[in-house]
């Protein structure tokens, strides 16, 4: 029971971090149709900026400053890069962000060096939130969950309940009409892109301190972010939320299961041992393939339900 509850908590909190990471990507894609390959790079910049700024003003102010910095960076990228590339179509945009990801990574290496930076957990978040049975649950994880939920709430409110949200939605579905009504559509795009990047930056502030802040952190989360976006349904914020939780919990529990095909066959009386052909495949445990499961899910989802869990478009 202890194991189950703790695993569930671990899964949910990891899922929520995934959500923070991928929500920006989903937003940008749903609104602008841009598949931002540099998204994880903005996540990394968020972590590094928070580390540097945090040294001067502390972790909590940095929690606000870093996403703003990353957001401005994102807005600048949209204004001076993406907007020009936009007229050549989506492929050009895709290639642009692809190149951008490399550029950002190399720039980070030049500024902060190749090794990990000592981005430490602030004293207020260091320690245990509560102890369940005998396992303690770290404050930082609790904080991570809280931030993710607050983020979901505020983005949702912004889009659905405010005037600016209305304008954004209008500009994205009917850009010409919105423009004719006097709204500055390019600026809306800039806002969305900057906003999406700021969300990635926020995830970076938390992810960087929870894990390790080093130049390859972007490359290591890059693929999983796309899995979340695709499984949740391209462009669906709620879908991304569900998919993140699903993947987080699935991965956590898969690690706990030492089942293998060999074991299953053994249970029904067929003995599989080292002499059996392809033995290494038979004895593979679910816990061993756990990290691959999200990608398996991605492939299956694309085959059987291309629009994702809650996606609206099937194209």
């Amino acid at each position: 029971m202890e194991f189950f509850v703790i695993s569930l908590l671990n899964g949910v909190s990891y899922g929520l971090l995934l959500f923070m990471l991928s929500s920006g990507l989903t937003l940008i894609f749903s609104m602008m149709g841009v598949l931002n390959f540099a998204h994880a790079a903005f996540y990394m910049v968020g972590a590094y900026v928070a580390y540097s700024v945090g040294l001067k003003i502390g972790f909590f102010p940095a929690l606000f400053v870093a996403p703003v910095v990353v957001g401005l960076l994102g807005a600048a990228v949209e204004r001076y890069g993406l907007r020009t590339v936009h007229r050549w179509g989506h492929v050009a945009e895709l290639l642009f962000t692809f190149g951008l990801a490399y550029l950002i990574e190399e720039t980070v290496k030049v500024i902060w060096g190749l090794a990990a930076v000592p981005y430490r957990v602030p004293a207020a978040l260091d320690g245990h939130l509560f102890t369940l049975y005998s396992t303690s649950f770290p404050k930082l994880r609790g904080f991570m969950m809280l931030v993710a939920l607050l983020m979901l709430l505020s983005v949702w409110l912004l889009l659905k309940r405010t005037r600016i949200g209305l304008v954004i939605q209008a500009a994205l579905t009917h850009p010409h009409m919105a423009e004719a009504l006097g709204h500055n559509v390019p600026r809306v795009f800039m806002l969305v892109f900057g906003g999406g990047c700021a969300l990635a930056g926020l995830a970076g502030v938390i992810g960087g301190v929870a894990f390790i802040t080093e130049p390859s952190m972007a490359a290591s989360v890059g693929p999983i972010v796309f899995v979340v976006a695709v499984v949740g349904g391209m462009g669906s914020l709620a879908g991304a939320f569900l998919a993140s939780l699903l993947i987080g919990v699935m991965q956590t529990f898969a690690i706990a299961l030492d089942w293998s095909l060999a074991g299953m066959l053994g249970a029904i009386g067929i003995s599989v041992n080292e002499a059996t052909p392809l033995y290494s495949l038979w004895k593979l445990q679910i816990s061993q393939v756990a990290p691959v499961l999200p990608y398996l899910l991605l492939v299956l989802m694309l085959i059987f339900r291309p629009k994702g869990l809650l996606g609206t478009r099937a194209d």
């Binding site: 202890e2 194991f3 703790i6 695993s7 671990n10 899964g11 990891y14 005998s134 396992t135 994880r141 894990f211 290591s220 989360v221 991965q251 956590t252 529990f253 690690i255 706990a256 816990s287 756990a290 990290p291």
Partner: peptide
């Protein structure tokens, strides 16, 4: 692997 918490809870169990 970015999150080793599941392995750790397995160790604990």
């Amino acid at each position: 692997i970015k999150d080793f918490a599941p392995y750790v809870s397995k160790m604990k169990a």
